[in-house]
């Protein structure tokens, strides 16, 4: 696991021992230099656009500070955090966000895997069509997708009520955005439609990396399609699945655009990002809003950490396995 372990490739280096020793220290030094040379610019750019704002947000979260009233800015320590964590609105936003994340990511993973399989295995005549079609929802702007789904379910502009009146509970008068769970259902539907292709694309990349030789070998051994899926395909694309899952979960946890467009946070559909937006941008309470953002960030870090530790997603350990 450790990245400092010598990679297997170099252990079997055909060169003779004395040469090898000198070579390693030379090469490791030049590798180190090259590594920073190559990765440095990306690193610097990322830090430049985020390190300052991140630091600023943490710093400002310790103040009572209203943008329109800078004169009365005062240091309040962790008060903002206390106010947030004791407020039921925060917990409601957390649960709404968790709900949306779990529901959409779970559905998307299954659906996305199916789509990836179809893209990988479909008849060559329909494969390009299917692949192009799947790419379209991903390319469509979230705001546009949110508008489309909102207009579709809206009691005045929509067609859903007249098309699906045969489903119990749906009538011409069903107001989808007038109730919490119905609103969340539509939000989840829009998110799933929009982001399943993301997962399926990443999974397709993983699928393509499953060694064909192993598949053939399993086939020769008489393994069924199902067995091959579980024994060969999925284990060999674990990295791709985890990357897809990790990114999609973290992305889903910041859900904002769809809620902003569809409900504006009404009926208890407010996500944590929306809560932060409302404090910072709408109320101009920079201190309180920054604290919400910092807390949101901490929750997200926790999720990422859990993923990385529990599922051993570790891109850095490429060579040490």
């Amino acid at each position: 696991m450790s990245t400092t372990t010598l990679p297997p490739g170099e252990k079997t280096d055909p060169r003779s021992a004395p040469e090898k020793k000198a070579g390693i220290s030379d090469r490791s030094r030049s590798e180190r230099k090259l590594g920073w040379l190559l990765a440095g610019p990306a690193f610097v750019v990322m830090l430049a656009v985020t390190a300052y704002p991140i630091a600023q947000a943490i710093y400002e979260s310790l103040f009572s500070y209203r943008l329109t009233d800078p004169a009365n800015r005062s240091f309040t320590g962790l008060t903002n955090y206390w106010v947030i964590l004791t407020d039921p609105i925060w917990w409601q936003a957390i649960w709404v966000t968790v709900f949306i994340t779990v529901v959409t990511v779970a559905v998307e993973l299954v659906l996305g895997f199916g789509l990836a399989m179809v893209m990988a295995k479909a008849l060559s005549s329909i494969r390009p069509v299917v692949r192009a079609a799947i790419l379209i929802p991903y390319a469509v702007i979230t705001v546009v997708s949110a508008f489309a789904w909102q207009f579709a379910f809206d009691i005045n502009t929509g067609f859903v009520n007249s098309w699906f009146a045969w489903i119990p509970g749906v009538t011409a008068d069903t107001d989808w955005f007038g109730d919490r769970w119905q609103s969340l259902l539509v939000i989840c539907l829009a998110e799933i439609w929009k982001t399943t292709p993301f997962i399926s694309l990443l999974l397709l990349a993983g699928l393509a990396q499953v060694p064909e030789v192993l598949q053939e070998a399993a086939k020769v051994d008489g393994a069924s399609w199902w067995q091959r899926l579980w024994r060969v395909t999925i284990p060999n694309m674990k990295a791709a699945i985890m990357v897809a899952l990790l990114f999609r979960s973290l992305d889903a946890f910041r859900v904002f655009d769809s809620i902003f467009i569809m409900t504006g946070g009404a009926n208890g559909t407010e996500s944590v990002s929306f809560l932060a937006y409302r404090q910072t941008i709408a109320r101009l309470e920079i201190g309180l809003g920054s604290a919400v953002s910092v807390l949101l960030f901490l929750v997200v870090v926790l999720i990422a950490f859990t993923f990385i530790k529990a599922f051993k997603v570790d891109l850095a350990s490429t060579r040490g396995e």
Binding site: D154, I155, N156, D173, T174, D175, F177, G178, A266, N267
Partner: peptide
């Protein structure tokens, strides 16, 4: 107020 009262704004009102 009708079935969609809790989401009705000026535009939805005038449509109704």
């Amino acid at each position: 107020g009708g079935p969609a009262f809790s989401t009705a704004g000026e535009d939805a009102n005038v449509t109704d």
